[in-house]
Design a protein around this nucleic acid. Structure first.
Lengths: 227, 227
DNA sequence: CGGCGGCTTGATCGGTCTCAAGTACGGTGG
DNA sequence: CCACCGTACTTGAGACCGATCAAGCCGCCG
């Protein structure tokens, strides 16, 4: 049910964590995480909501997170999935421009923006890190827009490849999210996602270990993007 | 869209500009522009190309700029249009993730990233400005993704409204870009853009002053987004 | 074993693309 | 100033992909 907090390495110590930030204030620690505290969320639980004052920035420790926007007609566009190690909540100039929810159970580090900014002003390295992850996220958002003009098949293929590259194993992809989540990320309907996955399986490009676990049999063929 | 660093005042002097940056190096000038020099581009001329080492960041002084990506099949996705006062070239962690071209004749300030970063490390205000415009651009990119899942009519309407809000006059919109540019930004074909504009005109929502100049007759109706 | 939610599959519909002409506009040379 | 040209834009007819509507299936938990 709950996935493991600390998979391989025990480099991270939850209990002592909250006090951690204050104690080494003066030292030039450029790890962003040392400013924050650990929080947990259960499946589908809200983390923040579009329009809220953006006081915090997050890093995923375990589980995964979706950020999204809701259209006037009720449709949902998922802006990004954030996996272990990813940051989110960066898109906030003043208020969050998206909402965030845990996809499954998730553990996060919440960092106060103000603390981070103040520290960054005294620590060039931290400053560049902050700018870097924001820049990377910008780059990712642009790539996402590119996805949305492709054919259904390409979108699904690209999605699977992207996930596989971000996960531990590159051959078998674990999908933490539902078909509806995938559809809302790819700008398709749940039926089209399902049909496309079935088609990819029929063509031998993928195999279903289970509905939420897919083996990529032929990565290079998946990459050879057919319209 | 991106904030104007120096909104009302005409503090900017083209001729003396190049020497400007060096002379007041030591002073805490938090205007990004003081680090750069002026460059000009003619219509469709390249500014930088996707994959190039990202040494510079730009601000538009006059004219407009498109940033874009090219798909394997030759299609072009325009990531953004950058008008007077906007910054671009931020998406570059290390190398540019998009290409940039002048839409018409354009004047730009080119700022060295390294200089900017080094200055920002000694100037909290500048640092926050840099982070802010990047964050805003991220927010804009997410909004763009939202556009791409809407109907053709909504995309065109949103596009016109967005342009009108960024321009001087809110009632009459000047289109610096071609129909093809618009199509590539909205993820539509040129024919669909043309047809949709014609339809909007037939419904009385807009009027053509010329092909590149459109009057918005009923902004609130344009905002009442029909699918 | 029964029920419910998440997923798949099928049939039809509709919006956008494609292909193909036609038209207006801006620029250039006579 | 006008005729001509080329390019940008518009308009039309038909095809196609993905959405919609509607069942059915599977797996999981009680």
């Amino acid at each position: 049910m709950l996935q493991q907090v600390n998979p391989a390495r025990p480099a991270y110590r939850p209990p002592a964590f909250a006090a951690f930030g204050a104690s080494r204030e003066s030292q030039a620690d450029d790890r962003l995480e040392t400013v924050g505290h650990l929080v947990s969320r259960t499946q589908d639980q809200e983390i923040f909501s579009e329009g809220e004052l953006a006081t915090k920035l997050y890093k995923v420790i375990s589980g995964s997170v979706r950020t999204f926007k809701i259209l006037h007609d009720g449709r949902r566009q998922i802006v990004g999935f954030h996996l272990k190690g990813d940051f989110f909540g960066l898109e906030a100039a003043d208020r969050y421009s998206v909402s965030a929810e845990a996809v499954g159970a998730a553990e996060l580090i919440a960092m106060k923006r103000s603390t981070l900014l103040e520290r960054a002003s005294r620590n060039q390295n931290l400053f560049e890190k902050l700018l870097n992850i924001t820049t990377r996220e910008l780059s990712r958002a642009q790539a996402h827009a590119l996805l949305l003009i492709k054919s259904a098949q390409e979108r699904v293929q690209d999605f699977l490849l992207d996930l596989s590259e971000r996960a531990e194993s590159h051959e078998v992809v674990d999908l933490p999210m539902s078909r509806q989540d995938i559809a809302d990320y790819l700008g398709l309907t749940i039926e089209t996602v399902s049909r496309t996955l079935t088609l990819l399986e029929k063509n031998g490009l993928i195999s279903f270990c289970s509905t939420r676990r897919i083996a990529l049999n032929n990565r290079s063929a998946l990459k050879a993007l057919q319209r």
